[in-house]
Structures are given as C-alpha cells and as structure tokens.
Amino acid sequence: MVKFFQRVFFILSGLGFSGYIQAQDSLRNVKPEMADSMRSNGKIYVVVVVLLIILAGLYFYLIQVDRRLSRLEKNSK
C-alpha cells in the first residue's frame, strides 16, 4: 500500500515538474491576443476552482451511488 502511494506521488510530482518547465518556456514568447492578463491577475483561478468543486461534487455523488449499490449486492447474497 505504501509503495502504491509512493508510486502515485512520484507520477504526480513528475507531471508537476513538466508543467513547471512548460511555464518557463512560455515566458519567452509574448502572446498579445490571449487571455494572459486574465490568467496572471488571477481570475482564471476562479474558473479552475469552480470546476474542481464540480468535479469533487460529481465524484462524491458517484461514490455514494457506488456504496449504496455495494450494500445492496452484499445484502442480497
């Protein structure tokens, strides 16, 4: 189990690091047409947070349904 979490952490940190490198790359070229200013002044984070809340809610609901179904299956046996 510990090994499993170590592996997950390793993969996730790898993804984070690649994002960092990409961020460095993107600083070099200027993009006037994009919503860069919106991202830098922080407003896009609001959208990200909203989406993450929706994602969390969706998963919470799915977990509930999954648990209920498991209980039904267990009781009927």
Binding site: V8, L12, L15, G19, Q22, A23, D25, S26, K31, R39, I44, Y45, V47, V48, L51, L52, L55, Y59
Partner: peptide
Amino acid sequence: FFFLLYTFTAGFLGS
C-alpha cells in the same frame, strides 16, 4: 479523479 484534476488545472493554467 487525479487524471481529471490534472486536466482541469493544467488545462486552464498551462500555456
């Protein structure tokens, strides 16, 4: 869940 977490954050914040 973690795949989607990555998609939703990197998808909006990445260049």
